[in-house]
């Protein structure tokens, strides 16, 4: 926010007094763990941090449609096809609520979308992994959506009102997504030997990337501390990761499958689940754009956006013509 610039008839002096009052109010709201709303004063860094987080989250929903849309036309039963279509459609809906939440902070959806297709915005790097088999639909639902739920349930209490409220609805739908993923794996694990092998292979491939969804270890997570002080983030990356491991350890038994990690154990001293070290070099590589599908995902989003430009222009032109017609009618 332009705190030192004179504008709109408000002097620099008056502006700094307004900011001081706003800052006091902001600090008080955070201190009593209440909610910041769009019209409240907020520090520029808080606004920037939220726009970054919410838009990355929205982009993840939108890019995340692709690895699953990959199997809609080949789903092996009509019931599965129907559930998968509904799920991918939900993700478009999540993208829409999240872009709307980010728009309340003064950044338009067009700006965010342009940044995404220009390759300037980030999204969850898990969606840069491919979905070569049907079992990936199960593993994404169970593990990727499961990790997302662990991350997102605490976000329902995020200090920024529109974000927290959007997350309530997102989480309800995610829990359905996770159950359908689990059910796909359960069916495969109890199916033919080839189906069971397909399920195990998918669990093996998605295990480490899903643990990395919680972000870098706490001692290497530059934004976490400030985010927690602002009541946006409630638990540390490692804390959430440990909870997720604990959840999977139990559920994988029901599936009759295994997790590809022999070092998982409950640590009595820390009361947390330990797991094998993760390959953070791979994480950084994928994040830097050198994952298996980065170029493909971005190109697909870019081409859908560009090939749809004439449709959006037509809708705008039509709306303008209709508005002009109506204005003429009113004048006449």
């Amino acid at each position: 926010m332009a705190q030192n610039v004179q504008s709109g008839g408000v002097s620099t002096h008056e502006q700094s007094e307004l900011d001081a009052a706003g800052a006091e109010n902001f600090d008080a709201i955070i201190a009593r763990d209440s909610r910041i709303e769009p019209r409240d004063w907020m520090p520029e860094a808080y606004r920037r941090s939220l726009v970054r987080q919410i838009s990355q989250h929205a982009h993840s929903e939108i890019i995340g449609m692709q690895p699953e849309a990959n199997w809609i036309t080949r789903a092996p039963s009509l019931k599965r096809k129907s559930i998968l279509m509904a799920k991918v459609q939900d993700e478009a809906g999540h993208g829409l609520y999240l872009y709307s939440a980010a728009e309340t902070l003064g950044t338009s959806r067009d700006e965010m979308m342009d940044a995404l297709v220009a390759g300037k915005a980030r999204y969850s790097s898990i969606f840069n992994y491919p979905t070569p088999t049907w079992a990936d639909m199960g593993a994404i639902g169970w593990m990727v959506d499961g990790a997302a739920i662990c991350n997102q349930v605490p976000l329902c209490r995020a200090s920024y009102g529109p974000y927290g409220r959007a997350m309530v609805r997102v989480c309800k739908e995610e829990s359905f997504h996770q159950r359908q993923g689990f059910e796909i794996l359960l069916e495969l694990a109890n199916g033919t030997p080839e189906q069971k092998e397909m399920a195990q292979d998918a669990v093996n491939r998605w295990y480490a990337p899903s643990l990395m969804m919680f972000g870098p270890p706490d001692d290497d997570s530059p934004n976490s501390k400030q985010s927690m002080a602002w009541n946006i983030k409630r638990f540390s990356n490692d804390e959430l990761r440990s909870r997720f491991v604990g959840m999977m350890v139990e559920q994988v038994k029901v599936l009759g499958l295994t997790l590809p990690d022999t070092q998982i154990r409950f640590n009595e001293a820390t009361k947390k689940w330990d797991h094998a070290p993760l390959d953070w070099e791979e994480f950084k590589e994928v994040l830097a754009g050198r994952g298996p599908c980065n170029a493909q995902r971005l190109e697909r989003r870019r081409s859908a956006h560009e090939e749809g430009a004439w449709v959006r222009e037509a809708a705008t032109a039509y709306a303008e013509k209709q508005a002009a017609k109506n204005a003429q009618k009113v004048a006449a």
């Binding site: 809609i72 872009y99 859908a304």
Partner: peptide, 8 residues
């Protein structure tokens, strides 16, 4: 789905 001109 995932290729339309607008998210809507």
């Amino acid at each position: 789905i995932s290729r339309a001109p607008e998210l809507e």
